[in-house]
Every structure is written in structure tokens, then in C-alpha cells.
């Protein structure tokens, strides 16, 4: 899922300081699950804004609403009334949702209330890890399900650097060395000889480095264009 973190409140406050009617819009998907931008957080943010602005002597009308999914136009219609009534929208969705809002309601400004951090998963309650960079050419078959591009701090393809010690990455004792994990798993699966393969330079053109990506599926298109 997409993991996000709420922007620091003073930043959110500042981004809407010139407006008097605000909508805080949550999203019912990933950011609800990672407890950053769901209905609960939208309500909290709305309340905090109204209190802060009242204190500052600049009272404001704040509403909150959550749509099922902010990254698809059809779901945004559910918030049309609230969006039209507001001068500005604070989106608590990921960056995709914020952009979908600005496209769909092009006359209205939607600003981000979250920092979209990564594609990852909850490891345990309150802890999420980054697992995928969306490189466009998955190598997880080669590395037995542990992504060296995402989980190695140097995105190495051919084994651990000289900074790996006691299973931890040189950048932090908090971060596991991805190559230690891959190594251990290769032993477990009796495939250690794979460490000897020299993987050639990656073709990054399938990733964001190849320019902005659009995915087209002719078999499911219905617009005929």
C-alpha cells in the first residue's frame, strides 16, 4: 500500500491561511489503513484547524469528508457538494489523490495535508517499511522476494557492500541489510550459488528515470482512441 505521514500541523495551517472556508478530505484506502489520512484523521485535522484559527482571531469554517478512494474521478463525485462549498481543499490522500482532485475539480485548489512516503507495508502495529520503488521490471524472482533496489540503501544488485555488519545496514542500526537477508534466504532455499551471478546494469528506462510513465492496456480500453 501507499504509506503517508501527516504534514506537520503548522505547515497545514500555513497552506490555508488565506482561506475562510476549508474542506478536509480524507481517503478510505491506503492512508486509512496506515492511519494518516482516513476519516478519523480528517475529522481531527478539521477540528484542530478550527481551534487554531479561532485562537489566532481568524475563525474559519471547516468541514470534513472522506471518499472511498481519492485516486479515481468517479469516487470524487461523492464530495462534490462539500468541494463546491469550500474555498480550498486539504487532501489527506497520497499525492495521487491530491492530483486527481486538482484535475477533477480544476477550478478549486486542493493542497496536500500528507507527505506521501513510500510503497510499503505495516511490519507491526505502528511501524511501516518501504518495500517497492516501482522500478517497472521486477527482480524479486532473482533475490527470493527481497528487493535489493528498495531495501538496500545503495540499490546494489550484486551482493552486500563493505558496510554490512551483524545483519545491519551501514546507514543505520535500525535498518536490516537487504543483502544479509537475501543471503540467509538463499542458504535456506539451497540456492547460494546465485550469489555468484553478475547481474548486468539495470535498464532503468522502465522506471521513472525513463520519463513519466503511462500504462495503456488495449484489451480493456473502451474509449476507442
Amino acid at each position: 500500500m501507499i504509506v503517508g505521514e501527516r504534514k506537520p500541523f503548522p505547515k497545514i495551517l500555513q497552506s490555508v491561511e488565506n482561506y475562510e472556508k476549508i474542506l478536509v478530505l480524507g481517503c478510505g484506502e491506503c492512508v486509512t489503513v496506515c492511519m494518516a489520512g482516513g476519516d478519523k484523521e480528517a475529522k481531527e485535522t478539521a477540528l484542530a484547524l478550527s481551534i487554531a484559527r479561532k485562537r489566532a482571531g481568524k475563525p474559519v469554517a471547516v468541514e470534513s469528508k472522506t471518499v472511498e478512494r481519492q485516486c479515481e474521478f468517479e469516487y470524487l463525485e461523492a464530495a462534490r457538494r462539500q468541494v463546491e462549498a469550500a474555498e480550498v481543499v486539504i487532501s489527506l490522500a497520497c499525492g495521487v489523490g491530491v492530483q486527481a482532485m486538482n484535475m477533477h475539480f480544476a477550478d478549486k485548489l486542493t493542497v496536500p495535508g500528507l507527505n506521501t512516503t513510500f510503497m510499503g507495508m505495516p511490519l507491526r502495529q505502528g511501524v511501516w517499511t518501504e518495500n517497492c520503488l516501482g522500478c517497472g521490471d521486477c527482480v524479486l524472482d532473482l533475490t527470493l522476494g527481497i528487493c535489493p533496489i528498495t531495501r538496500c540503501s545503495k540499490s546494489m544488485f550484486n551482493g552486500p557492500c563493505g558496510g554490512s555488519q551483524e545483519g545491519k545496514c551501514e546507514v543505520s542500526k535500525e535498518v536490516d541489510c537487504a543483502w544479509q537477508l537475501i543471503y540467509d534466504r538463499l542458504i535456506k532455499m539451497d540456492m547460494l550459488e546465485r550469489m555468484e551471478v553478475i547481474h548486468p546494469p539495470k535498464d532503468w528506462s522502465a522506471s521513472h528515470h525513463g520519463s513519466v510513465r503511462t500504462s495503456v492496456r488495449e484489451d480493456v480500453r473502451i474509449d476507442g482512441q
Binding site: K154, N158, E170, H199, P200, P201
Partner: peptide
Amino acid sequence: LQGDHAKFGNEPGSKNVNDVDSMQWLQA
């Protein structure tokens, strides 16, 4: 060489390029 992570240096906000890794560069 691969190089120490940029986090350790005086430009911790820089991009770590790592387009190829040290093994690939050697072979290249």
C-alpha cells in the same frame, strides 16, 4: 567502488545515484 552513503557526508540531502553498482562498474 560503491562509495559511502551520502547520509554520512556534508551533503546529506543529495541523491545517491547508484545507477550501476560497484561490480557492474568494474565489469563495464
